[in-house]
Design a protein around this nucleic acid. Sequence first.
DNA 1: GAATTAACGTGATATAGGTCACAAATTATA
DNA 2: TATAATTTGTGACCTATATCACGTTAATTC
Lengths: 187, 187
Amino acid sequence: MEEILRQQIEKIVPLTDDEFRLVLSHFSVGNYKKHQYIVQQENPVPYVHFVVKGLLKSFYIDKSGKNHVLQFAMEDWWITDNQGFYNNQNATLNIDCLEDAQTYYITLEDREKLCNELQKMEFFFLQKMTAGNIALQNRILSLMSKNSEERYIQFIQLYPDLIHRIPKTLIASYLGISRETLSRLWN
Amino acid sequence: MEEILRQQIEKIVPLTDDEFRLVLSHFSVGNYKKHQYIVQQENPVPYVHFVVKGLLKSFYIDKSGKNHVLQFAMEDWWITDNQGFYNNQNATLNIDCLEDAQTYYITLEDREKLCNELQKMEFFFLQKMTAGNIALQNRILSLMSKNSEERYIQFIQLYPDLIHRIPKTLIASYLGISRETLSRLWN
DNA sequence: GAATTAACGTGATATAGGTCACAAATTATA
DNA sequence: TATAATTTGTGACCTATATCACGTTAATTC
C-alpha cells in the first residue's frame, strides 16, 4: 500500500528509502466503509487524504437541497475540502465513500513540518497543486463551451476507469446535467 | 511599482530588502497597449505575468468560434496560460489587454531558480496556487448550482472593482451566459 | 433469498437561456 | 469633431436541458 504513495511522489521527485520513511511517518492510515463520511459540511476539515484503495466523492449541497459532485477520488488521488483544510474553516463540502476505502491522511501542520524537513516535498505539493489548477480550468472551459454530450464523451476519455465504478446519476451530477438527460444521450 | 509585488509577497512571507532585490532580479518589466496580445493560441507561453498596472483577460476560442473568458487580471493579480506555461506546451488560451498594462514577468526556469535560492518563495507560490484552486472550485460549483442572476450577483460581490472597468459583454462571457441574458437581468 | 433500496430508461411538459435582428447610445480614434 | 467602432437594450422566436412521473431492472442487505 505504501508503495502507491511512494510511486506517486517519485513521479515528481526521487526519494531515498530514508526519505520515504520520513514522509510516511507524518501520515496516518484510515479505513472507511462504503457510505461513510470523512468530511461533513459545517465541520472541521483536519486532513487531506491520499487514496490507496477504494473510491470517494466530494459534493456540495446547494440551498435548494440539490447535490453537485465536485470530485471523485480513486486510488492514487488526493481529496479533501480545500477551502476548509487550507484555511482552517469548517467544511462547505461533504466527502463520502462510494466503495470501502483506505487512505493515508495528514494534517496541514504535519504537511508543513514535512516540507520543512524535506524541501523537495514542497516542490511535490506545488506540482500537484499546479496540475490541479490546470484540470480545474479545463473543467470550467468545458462547462462553458461544451454541451452535455460533449462533456460526457470528454469524461469517458479522461477517466475511462471511473465509468464502470460510478453510477450514471453521479457522473451526471459531476458533469452538471440531470440524470435523465445523461440517460437519453445514447439511444 | 515594485512595491505592489513586494506587498503581494509579504502578505504571505516576510522579505528583507536584500531578499526582495533577489526576487526582483529574476523578473522583467513589460509594457503593453490596449488590445495587445501577450499570449496567443498555438504559440509558446514563456512567462507568467504579475500585473502592476492595467487590466487583462485570458480567453478560450471554442471550435465554433465562440469566445469564453477564463480570467480577468488587474493590478496585484497573476496571469498566464497555466497549461502552456507549466507544461511547456503551446497555448490553448489567448491573453490580451483591456487597458494599457504593465507587468512583471518571469520564466518557469527563473522561477525555479528563484525558489532554490530563496526557499520561502516556493512556499509563496504554493500558497498562491492553493488559493487559486479554491477559487476555481468555487467557480465550478457556482456554474453548476446557480442561475445567471445569482452568478452575476456573486461576481459583483467578489469583484466590485471590476464591474466598472469591464464591458458587460465580457462579464457575461466570464459568467457563461449570453450578453443578451445578462442585459435582461436588471430591468 | 426475500425484501429494500438504488439505478436506469423513457414519456410528457415546462422553462431558462440562447440566437438573430435591429436600433440607440456610448466610446475611440483619425 | 466627425467618423467609425464598440457597447448596450430589447423584441421575437427557438432549443437544450430540467422537471415530474412512472415502471423496470439490478444491487444491497438483513
